[in-house]
């Protein structure tokens, strides 16, 4: 039992590795903000392309969502970070992670948006446009608010997945939360920093997961 506590819940080691993990958390948060924000915007455009009346636009957006949902994000990441330099394209670790996960993540957001947009009755478009609103105004003020509300749990779920996904960035030595915890582990020869990192993720994500359940129940009611 002492070994268990000493190896996983060593307060002294946790205290010492805390600053390193905090800086890792900061990097994770920066990654998340970039990927989530760009993903929410990009995903919307991909979804709109998917519903366009122009066939070529539909095809491009369908190909995009199919490709990047099927490709494992880790494969994408390593290809962008370690593969592209062979073609003379060098990308910083941070940018590589953002690009790789954005491609993946915006495809999933796009599918969620699409479900939301379809769920809004056609009459809403017609009513808004019959009052002289442009298609963009109709989308922004009338359709999108209803669409987002209808798929809020799914948008949030997807966001939780993105936060977890960023831990893969440790593979290319980006000093985010998991990578720094691994560093602390190998320096102290003790697993407590990993436990501490897990606690960080838990504190970050548990409220979000709760929120998803809350919205799901509210929508079901």
């Amino acid at each position: 039992m002492d070994i268990f506590i000493d190896q996983f819940f060593n307060i002294e080691i946790m205290r010492k590795s805390f600053p390193l993990l905090l800086s890792g958390l900061w990097m994770t948060l920066k990654l998340c903000s970039a990927v989530i924000l760009l993903g929410l915007i990009g995903g919307l455009f991909v979804a709109l392309g998917n519903m366009s009346e122009r066939r070529w636009l539909r095809w491009i957006s369908i190909a995009y969502t199919d490709l990047f949902r099927a490709l494992p994000p880790l494969v994408l990441l390593i290809f962008i970070y370690a593969g592209l330099p062979f073609a003379g394209i060098n990308i910083s670790p941070f940018a590589a992670v953002v690009i790789a996960f954005l491609l993946n993540n915006s495809s999933y957001y796009a599918e969620v948006y699409r479900a939301g947009l379809i769920s809004v009755a056609k009459g809403q478009w017609e009513a808004a446009q019959s009052t002289g609103l442009t298609p963009a105004q109709t989308l922004i003020h009338v359709v999108l608010p209803q669409a987002v509300r209808n798929v809020l749990p799914d948008l949030l779920s997807n966001t939780v997945e993105v936060v977890k996904l960023t831990s893969l960035a440790s593979v290319i030595s980006l000093s985010e939360l998991l990578y720094n915890a691994g560093m602390a582990r190998s320096v102290t020869y003790n697993a407590s920093p990993l436990v501490l990192a897990a606690l960080f993720y838990l504190v970050l994500l548990w409220p979000l997961v709760r929120l998803v359940s809350h919205f799901q129940r509210r929508l079901a009611a």
């Binding site: 809403q124 009513a127 019959s130 209803q146």
Partner: peptide, 22 residues
């Protein structure tokens, strides 16, 4: 754009009302 402007002059009332629920 012309069409959007012209539609201001043509009011329409639908069978299903189509008020904005939000």
């Amino acid at each position: 754009r012309d069409l959007d402007r012209m539609r201001l002059q043509i009011g329409m009332v639908f069978q299903g009302f189509h008020l904005y629920p939000h």
